[in-house]
């Protein structure tokens, strides 16, 4: 592994100041499961590693029926996957996280790290977008919060400015009649990057579908919402014909590329199939 300087900032202010002072060669280290691979494979030149694990308060996880779910930047994927409240109230997130890498990786990898890497195929992102989650960001000029949906600007790129650090995630509480689902499509069951990922979060309410958000992964430069599909379903009693129409709309909203994992045409077709399935699962789900 190429040598780097190593730092252990004790506070967010110190970490943020270091990031600003050290410039582009500095990188935050939390789980390290992506960063160390990128350094080893020389995909990125990193001269300074800032381990944020010594900063207090970033490993908290809490759930409250009124407040929803909050977790810090150091909370690992495995902790989310095995948390009773997440399993019960955010099954879409729990499923997505359980499909990321192996248990060994998930014991180290953080959900915030998965988000910050901004891969279009990242498993954790579609469910968080579907659930209208927001990120807390600490920066040189203070704190701000950004919707996960608005966080990405392209593959590997985010709205983070120099010296900014994502400190945690907040997911709103689920409605009493909520239904959620995440389906990951790949060539094999484990140790796989998503060919297509579809997350649905809905509130059945009175109409059968009072509110719905659909997020698609791996089919555009960033994870996206399928807004036209959502609009077709929102406030309507969903029958198979309507669902087929929405699935078609979601296909048209995706702009996938062809790569080693799948062709663009196949990905677009799978968006249709999986959107239909995921909405179906979310409609059946009883929290």
């Amino acid at each position: 592994m190429r040598p780097f300087e190593y730092h252990e900032p004790k506070s967010l202010a110190e970490a943020s100041a270091l990031l600003c002072a050290l410039g582009a060669g500095a990188s935050i280290f939390a789980g390290g499961t992506d960063l160390l691979v990128e350094i080893k494979e020389e995909l990125r030149s990193v001269s300074h590693v800032l381990n944020i694990k010594k900063i207090e308060g970033l490993d908290a996880l809490s759930f409250d029926k009124a407040e929803g779910l909050s977790f810090g930047a150091l909370v690992t994927a495995r902790r989310i996957e095995t948390d009773a409240a997440v399993l019960r109230h955010y099954p879409n997130l729990a499923t997505a996280v359980s499909l990321l890498g192996s248990i060994q990786v998930r014991n180290r990898a953080t959900v915030v790290g998965n988000i910050c890497r901004a891969s279009p195929s990242a498993d954790t992102i579609p469910p968080l977008i579907a659930d209208a989650a927001t990120l807390s960001i600490h920066g040189p000029t203070g704190e701000r919060s950004v919707a996960v949906e608005d966080f990405f600007t392209g593959p590997g790129r985010t709205v983070l400015k120099a010296g900014e650090i994502v400190t945690g995630v907040h997911v709103p509480p689920p409605a009493a009649t909520s239904g959620k689902a995440y389906i990951k499509h790949g060539r094999r069951k484990a140790m796989e990057l998503a060919t297509v990922g579809v997350a649905v979060s809905l509130d059945r309410g009175r109409s059968g579908c009072d509110e719905i958000r659909i997020a698609l992964g791996a089919v555009a430069a960033t994870p996206i919402r399928a807004r036209k599909a959502e609009a077709l379903l929102r406030g309507r009693a969903i029958d198979p014909a309507l669902l087929a129409e929405a699935a078609e709309a979601a296909m048209n909203e995706s702009t996938p590329i062809s790569n080693v994992r799948a062709s663009a045409a196949y990905r677009r077709d799978m968006v249709g199939v999986l959107t239909r399935r995921a909405v179906g699962i979310a409609l059946e789900a009883r929290p």
Binding site: Y6, L36, S102, I103, Q104, M191
Partner: peptide
């Protein structure tokens, strides 16, 4: 593999199985 894909380097660290190729020694 040295990049977290194969699990040959699995050790148990503070009770949890991890890929030791993705942990820094100083950690």
């Amino acid at each position: 593999c040295d990049v977290g894909d194969c699990g040959a380097c699995t050790v148990i660290m503070d009770g949890s199985p991890v890929n030791s190729c993705l942990v820094l020694g100083i950690e």
